[in-house]
Structures are given as C-alpha cells and as structure tokens.
Amino acid sequence: MDTNTKDTVIDVNNVEFLYEETDTAQVLKGITLNVRRGEFLAVLGHNGSGKSTLAKHLNAILVPQTGNVTVEGFDTADENLLYKIRQRVGMVFQNPDNQLVATIVEEDVAFAPENLGVPQAEIKKRVEYALDAVNMTEYKEHAPHMLSGGQKQRIAIAGILAMKPDVLVMDEPTAMLDPVGRREIMETVKKLNREENMTVVMITHFMEEAAEADRVIVMDHGKSIMEGAPKEVFSRVEELKKIGLDVPQTTELCFLLKKSGLDFDANILTIDECVNKVMSVYNSKGGATND
C-alpha cells in the first residue's frame, strides 16, 4: 500500500480493538487503511463488521488497544492532541435528532466553534459559511425539530463544517432518511467533496451511494478485505455475496447476463452505462440472427 505521507490525512495502522475484556472476539482485528486528502471514500460491510467502531477511532472517541491511528501525523492516543484531532476530523451520525444540541439552527451550528473558543465575529462568519455550504441559510432561525429529516441532517453536517475540519466522517448518515432526504445528503456531500475539496469518509449500507465514491473499502469481521475503485470492487460479485453484501442492481444484472454466456462485464455501475451495454449487445446479437 502506498503511504505517501503528504497525501494521507488519516493513517490507520494495524488496529485491534475490543469493547470489553470479557468479549470473546475482537471487533477490529488488525485493520490497516489510509484516507487520502480530497478523496471520497466509502466503507461497506454487513451489520456488526466493525464499521462504526472504526469510525470512532478516526477522531479519538475510541483509542486502539494495539496499533495506532494518526490524523495529519497526530497520534490519537496522545491526550494532549485530543481537540486538535477532533477539530480536524468531524463526525456525523445516523440519527440527526440525537446530534443537535440547540433549539435554534444557527445556535446549533455555532456549538462547535463556541467550544473551541473561536472569537465571536469569526463564529458568525463560520455559521454563515457552514449554512451556505449545506444550502440551509434561509432556515437559520428555525427550530430544528420543525425541519425534515434531510434538512436536520444537513444542519448536523453544517455543525461539523463550522469547525473547519479536514475530514468529514459520516456513519450511515442516510439510514434514517426517506429517498428525498437521502438524495439531498448525497448531493450535499458530493458538492462539498468537489467544490470545497473536503475529504469524505462515508459508511453506508446503500450500494448506490458507495458507487458514487472515488474508492471503496469493504469490511468483514473487523478487517478490510477489499479495496479499490467502485467498479473494481463491485465486479467481485460472488465474493461480496459470500459476506452478505449486495451489489448495485445494474451490476448484478450485468453479472447474471455474463454468467449466462453473454458478452458482459460486471463492472457496470450506472443505469445509463447498463442501458447502453444492453442495447449494444442486443444490437450485435440482433444483427447476427437477422443476417
């Protein structure tokens, strides 16, 4: 694995972890990975594979029992660096209701900079910037509990952006949202990644979301077992199925067509790609039989 330190923001090195001494199996079993600056990284894995546990290691909520995690070169095990690390790696969780602290949107977004002791004038600027980045400026004086799930989750993201982090880690941020909310979050995150050059680590159960990432890591039983571009990872349909994961429907279709002997690759992700491929195969076949 290339560990070009200049481009690595977070380095997870051979980390082992278990919650309680009495537990029989470790939750993380020597996982190694790195997060590169500016990338959109998706983490997949079935329930209980240790994704949330891994996420909590990225900003020193949990500290590895063996191995180490460094953020911009800062070791998460060093207590003195705690707030430096947390400020750099922001975290958004599944349930937006359980992350919002204040009763007014802008007060909530200001929470992190207030904790960091940022001067008042600068807090104001950051709140404006963060609300603008998630497209929620017009709601700044609303009460969060009156907003939709997707809007609440965007406020949660803004609350993290106000810390000016280098990395945005999200643990299944769309799991509790309806399709509209899910779309809103994906668009917000992709925009941040593209326009603000924000490094994004997104844990998700939705293959369609992972397909939009630059790179995908698949976890199983506390280890990273696959890594690569979405196309590469999803083309390994049988391996993924074996560990209980799905692949995007389009990929699955192409995989099945290939298996039945047609000229298909299983590295097709988007619906457009799939349609084009089906049409071209159909045309070439159709041409052959008509002749």
């Binding site: 922001g90 200001a110 992190a112 904790n115 002791g117």
Partner: peptide
C-alpha cells in the same frame, strides 16, 4: 464530544 465539547471553560458565544 465530536464537536469538541469540554465544559464551560474558555467557551465563547455566538
């Protein structure tokens, strides 16, 4: 904790 909360010391306000 993720939002760097550490009690009232050195806290500024919006």
């Amino acid at each position: 904790e993720c939002r760097c909360y550490r009690g009232g010391e050195n806290r500024t306000r919006l």
